[in-house]
Protein backbone atom coordinates (compact mmCIF):
# COMPACT_ATOMS: atom_id res chain seq x y z
CA UNK A 1 0.00 0.00 0.00
CA UNK A 2 1.46 3.28 -1.02
CA UNK A 3 1.54 6.45 0.88
CA UNK A 4 -1.13 8.03 -1.23
CA UNK A 5 -3.51 5.22 -0.41
CA UNK A 6 -3.27 5.79 3.30
CA UNK A 7 -5.64 8.68 3.36
CA UNK A 8 -8.13 6.81 1.27
CA UNK A 9 -8.63 3.67 3.31
CA UNK A 10 -10.64 3.77 6.44
CA UNK A 11 -9.41 1.43 9.13
CA UNK A 12 -12.10 2.09 11.68
CA UNK A 13 -13.22 4.85 13.96
CA UNK A 14 -10.75 3.98 16.73
CA UNK A 15 -7.77 4.08 14.40
CA UNK A 16 -9.12 7.29 12.96
CA UNK A 17 -9.25 8.82 16.41
CA UNK A 18 -5.53 8.09 16.80
CA UNK A 19 -4.88 9.95 13.59
CA UNK A 20 -6.91 12.92 14.72
CA UNK A 21 -5.20 13.08 18.08
CA UNK A 22 -1.79 12.86 16.46
CA UNK A 23 -2.60 15.60 14.00
CA UNK A 24 -4.04 17.79 16.69
CA UNK A 25 -0.92 17.38 18.86
CA UNK A 26 1.45 18.14 16.01
CA UNK A 27 -0.45 21.20 14.88
CA UNK A 28 0.62 23.08 17.96
CA UNK A 29 4.26 22.11 17.56
CA UNK A 30 6.95 23.72 15.44
CA UNK A 31 9.54 21.56 13.63
CA UNK A 32 12.20 22.83 15.96
CA UNK A 33 10.15 21.86 18.97
CA UNK A 34 9.58 18.46 17.43
CA UNK A 35 13.32 17.91 17.02
CA UNK A 36 13.89 19.05 20.56
CA UNK A 37 11.14 16.76 21.82
CA UNK A 38 12.65 13.83 19.99
CA UNK A 39 16.08 14.49 21.40
CA UNK A 40 14.75 15.09 24.87
CA UNK A 41 12.30 12.18 24.59
CA UNK A 42 9.54 14.49 25.68
CA UNK A 43 5.91 13.68 25.13
CA UNK A 44 3.58 15.83 23.09
CA UNK A 45 0.45 14.00 24.17
CA UNK A 46 -0.37 15.90 27.29
CA UNK A 47 -3.92 16.54 26.19
CA UNK A 48 -4.47 13.18 24.50
CA UNK A 49 -6.95 12.02 27.11
CA UNK A 50 -9.21 15.00 26.64
CA UNK A 51 -9.08 14.72 22.89
CA UNK A 52 -9.86 11.03 22.92
CA UNK A 53 -12.78 11.66 25.16
CA UNK A 54 -13.97 14.38 22.84
CA UNK A 55 -13.76 12.27 19.72
CA UNK A 56 -15.18 9.19 21.38
CA UNK A 57 -18.21 11.19 22.39
CA UNK A 58 -19.42 10.91 18.83
CA UNK A 59 -19.37 7.14 18.94
CA UNK A 60 -22.16 5.13 20.53
CA UNK A 61 -21.03 3.17 23.58
CA UNK A 62 -21.86 -0.20 22.13
CA UNK A 63 -19.53 0.52 19.23
CA UNK A 64 -16.56 1.32 21.45
CA UNK A 65 -16.11 -2.38 22.07
CA UNK A 66 -15.05 -2.69 18.48
CA UNK A 67 -11.99 -0.49 19.02
CA UNK A 68 -9.77 -3.33 20.19
CA UNK A 69 -10.59 -5.41 17.14
CA UNK A 70 -9.81 -2.51 14.84
CA UNK A 71 -6.38 -2.01 16.37
CA UNK A 72 -5.68 -5.74 16.25
CA UNK A 73 -6.62 -5.89 12.61
CA UNK A 74 -4.33 -3.00 11.73
CA UNK A 75 -1.54 -4.52 13.76
CA UNK A 76 -1.89 -7.79 11.87
CA UNK A 77 -2.54 -6.62 8.37
CA UNK A 78 -0.79 -3.29 7.90
CA UNK A 79 2.98 -3.29 7.13
CA UNK A 80 4.69 -2.03 10.24
CA UNK A 81 1.55 -2.20 12.31
CA UNK A 82 -0.02 0.84 13.84
CA UNK A 83 3.33 2.66 13.93
CA UNK A 84 3.83 2.15 10.20
CA UNK A 85 0.31 3.40 9.61
CA UNK A 86 0.94 6.51 11.69
CA UNK A 87 4.14 7.19 9.76
CA UNK A 88 2.28 6.93 6.49
CA UNK A 89 -0.38 9.28 7.82
CA UNK A 90 2.28 11.77 8.78
CA UNK A 91 3.73 11.57 5.27
CA UNK A 92 0.37 12.70 3.99
CA UNK A 93 -0.73 15.07 6.73
CA UNK A 94 2.60 16.53 7.91
CA UNK A 95 5.37 15.87 5.39
CA UNK A 96 7.81 18.13 7.21
CA UNK A 97 7.40 16.26 10.49
CA UNK A 98 7.54 12.97 8.70
CA UNK A 99 10.86 13.92 7.12
CA UNK A 100 12.19 15.17 10.42
CA UNK A 101 11.17 11.97 12.17
CA UNK A 102 13.02 10.02 9.51
CA UNK A 103 16.15 12.15 9.65
CA UNK A 104 16.37 12.70 13.36
CA UNK A 105 18.07 10.10 15.44
CA UNK A 106 15.55 8.27 17.57
CA UNK A 107 12.62 9.75 15.71
CA UNK A 108 10.85 6.48 15.01
CA UNK A 109 11.20 5.28 18.56
CA UNK A 110 9.87 8.57 19.83
CA UNK A 111 6.87 8.25 17.56
CA UNK A 112 6.20 4.73 18.78
CA UNK A 113 6.19 6.06 22.30
CA UNK A 114 3.67 8.72 21.36
CA UNK A 115 1.42 6.19 19.68
CA UNK A 116 1.65 3.94 22.67
CA UNK A 117 0.60 6.77 24.92
CA UNK A 118 -2.40 7.47 22.76
CA UNK A 119 -3.39 3.83 22.74
CA UNK A 120 -3.02 3.63 26.46
CA UNK A 121 -5.29 6.60 26.93
CA UNK A 122 -7.74 5.09 24.52
CA UNK A 123 -7.65 1.80 26.32
CA UNK A 124 -8.30 3.52 29.63
CA UNK A 125 -11.18 5.44 28.22
CA UNK A 126 -12.85 2.54 26.47
CA UNK A 127 -12.32 0.04 29.23
Amino acid sequence: MGVNDVGEKYHGFAVDIVRKVMNSSLQGTTPGQLVESIRANASLMQNASGQIRYYSGFIPPFALSMAGRQFSKVEKTYPGGINGLVMDWLAVDHPVYHSLLLNTEGGKEWLETQVREILDEFDVFTR
Binding site: T30, P31, G32, P95, V96, S99, L100, N103
Partner: peptide, 25 residues
Protein backbone atom coordinates in the same frame (compact mmCIF):
# COMPACT_ATOMS: atom_id res chain seq x y z
CA UNK B 1 11.12 26.14 8.97
CA UNK B 2 13.24 27.59 11.76
CA UNK B 3 15.77 25.14 13.11
CA UNK B 4 15.49 22.88 10.14
CA UNK B 5 17.45 22.68 6.97
CA UNK B 6 15.99 21.79 3.67
CA UNK B 7 17.64 19.68 1.04
CA UNK B 8 16.47 18.45 -2.25
CA UNK B 9 16.77 14.80 -3.03
CA UNK B 10 19.26 14.29 -5.82
CA UNK B 11 17.33 11.33 -7.00
CA UNK B 12 13.69 12.39 -7.02
CA UNK B 13 13.89 16.05 -6.14
CA UNK B 14 11.63 15.73 -3.15
CA UNK B 15 12.33 18.12 -0.31
CA UNK B 16 14.14 16.63 2.67
CA UNK B 17 13.84 18.29 6.05
CA UNK B 18 16.66 17.56 8.41
CA UNK B 19 17.76 19.04 11.70
CA UNK B 20 20.39 21.68 11.44
CA UNK B 21 23.15 19.43 12.65
CA UNK B 22 22.17 16.31 10.77
CA UNK B 23 24.91 14.44 9.01
CA UNK B 24 22.73 12.23 6.91
CA UNK B 25 19.40 12.49 5.23
Amino acid sequence: PPGVNTLACLDCGAPIYVPSDATSA
